[in-house]
Design a protein around this nucleic acid. Structure first.
Lengths: 331, 331
DNA sequence: CACAGTCTTGCAACCGATTGCAAAAAGCCG
DNA sequence: CGGCTTTTTGCAATCGGTTGCAAGACTGTG
């Protein structure tokens, strides 16, 4: 059915090796030969079978892209960037959805069956046991948007969550709020803990400022709304730093339902700066993750590890920027 | 590095064929042999290399998933469903992002290089030349969320866009609006044309109802906002059927900026029912696409075509449902 | 023109699997 | 136990490529 190297060889009246060589970077072929082969290949519509090739070269150019963030709109942007970035380097993403609770063993087996050249784990909520399992199996791994793990033997590209917490607290205090709080995502995730810790740490430097913190069960609109409902009933703080933008929007909806207004009654600052945050019906003040740079660095690292698998693991943290919109009181 | 069939054969003291057979469905192996091989395989942590296998079986279980909708949040849900659905059938999605304007030739070559077993095109905005190019190359193709093409030789799973237009018009008229309009996405896309045609057709049955229509350049928040700004300046209709939910939200933002209110001053009905539409700050009345059923049917069809490549192309259209929320005046 | 040195080419083995075929083993029956 | 059928097994070819090696074709030089 498909046209093979042999078909081309026959038509060009040369050996299969010659055909192979004209299609391999840096192989030794004369100009005359190359012309002849290329002509035949063009006429037959030949293009080499990368899977067969991978058998001997041990390169599939397949990259596993693992995530379980299929409800946070930010990740649509992330997937967009990843797929394009990988494509630009002739790498192919094999998407793996961990939502339905596959275990590391199972997904690792999958990657081995398809001999992926590397794995990108892209989520803040996946326990580091996944990246580590892939790493232990000898696969190049980069964890993007994840926390710094304790054992630092997996590449990590991310933001400095603790520092984001500090930035949020500092901004709120600068704005004159004296009672501020952190409303995080799932308590057990590391990024949430870091964001919380940074927030409390910075606030602690201001003795007059009262702080508190609580957690929503998931990074979802409904969870944010429910948690804020609870907080409102219990007597809310003046301003909240929410674990991410989706939570922020949920929280704002609760505030409005309660007949209060943002920012007049309660201030909100989020984290992510997903596209929706900029919609002027939302107009959320938030801390922007530089997702473009994170994705770019991740792909760069994976490519580098494909060259040199023994490369020392490193972690790159990118600075975040506060995007002031309309959900905090002025000045 | 990786453990191969030979390693297992040596350890179990049997021939490689025997190992292969214990790992292939329906091959003839005695119980004793199977036990022996499985033990050795387990001890070595062997799992078969699917790419090598594909050379002889002509099956990669790889499915190309092509899209260019990386800004519509609905598609995050769609990707979630697709990746899980494919995974459940032991198929692997290779994601291809057509945003940056790759041509059909280029993506086709990619699919051939990786010998994908089928291609799912999932977008409403991609010209049908793509699906047809894949089809002409002999690949099983299903186009999901696309329009019915003129030449019906590609499987299509979708909604009946024309009928959605009718439903929207009928609902608006039932609600008592007498001046209604369609505000679509890109004029040149087929789905937009169908939605518009159905809308106008149903409205035309009511001589007292005035209609009009216009188009935003893209299915985006900003485009919806800009177009509605223009309409407001020119003198708006009483209610709008917008090409999709994102456009609707953009339009609503323009209306609010102009100091008008939804639904008191202007009614809005969207199409998609993406998650955000249900957020109670948005609370959008909309026509729901049954994305779960569409995805399920698409996967089913691709799987069926893998069995029987000559299967007659068919198109499955699923009925949509109106979800009444708060952006139309009550009954 | 002979000769050494460099390029190009084809042969054959190999990558990790599957599978048709025939030989060997096992099962069945009288 | 012998003879027959049915199962199980291994051999070797194959899938579509790549690559080390040695032979053949060039090139430049004296």
């Amino acid at each position: 059915m498909a046209v093979t190297i042999k078909d081309v060889a026959v038509r060009a009246n040369v050996s299969p090796s010659a055909v192979s060589r004209t299609f391999t970077e840096g192989a030794s072929v004369s100009d005359r030969m190359r012309k002849k082969v290329e002509k035949a290949a063009r006429e037959l519509g030949y293009s080499p079978n990368l899977l067969a090739r991978s058998l001997t070269t041990r390169r599939t150019l397949l990259i596993g892209l693992v995530s379980n963030n299929f409800s946070n709109p930010l990740f649509l942007q992330v997937f967009d960037l990843f797929t394009r970035g990988l494509q630009d380097r002739d790498l192919r993403p094999m998407l793996v959805n961990l939502t339905s609770g596959i275990d590391p063993e199972r997904s690792l087996e999958m990657f081995r069956q398809y001999s992926v050249d590397g794995v990108i784990v892209t989520t803040s909520e996946l326990p580091s046991v996944f990246s580590e399992a892939f790493h232990d199996a000898g696969l190049p791994v980069v964890h993007a948007f994840g926390p710094l793990t304790g054992t630092q033997d997996v590449h990590t590209v991310s933001i400095d969550d603790r520092n984001c917490g500090r930035m949020a607290a500092d901004l709120l205090i600068r704005k004159g709020y004296t009672s501020i709080a952190f409303m995080g995502g799932p308590k057990e995730t590391t990024v949430t803990q870091y964001r919380c810790a940074g927030f409390l740490e910075a606030a602690a430097r201001h003795p007059k400022v009262r702080t508190s913190h609580s957690f929503a069960g998931t990074h979802s609109y409904q969870a944010g709304r429910a948690e804020m409902m609870r907080l409102l009933a219990a007597g809310p703080a003046q301003a909240y730093f929410c674990g991410d933008d989706v939570l922020s929007i949920g929280a704002m909806s609760a505030i409005q339902s309660a007949g209060l207004r943002v920012p007049e009654d309660i201030g909100i600052i989020g984290l992510d700066d997903m596209e929706i945050a900029g919609w002027d019906t939302v107009n959320l003040t938030t801390i922007q993750q530089p997702i473009g740079r994170i994705v770019e660095a991740t792909i760069e690292l994976i490519a580098a590890m494909m060259e040199d698998p023994n490369r020392e693991p490193e972690s790159r943290l990118f600075p975040c920027k506060i995007i002031e919109r309309g959900t905090l009181r002025p000045g």
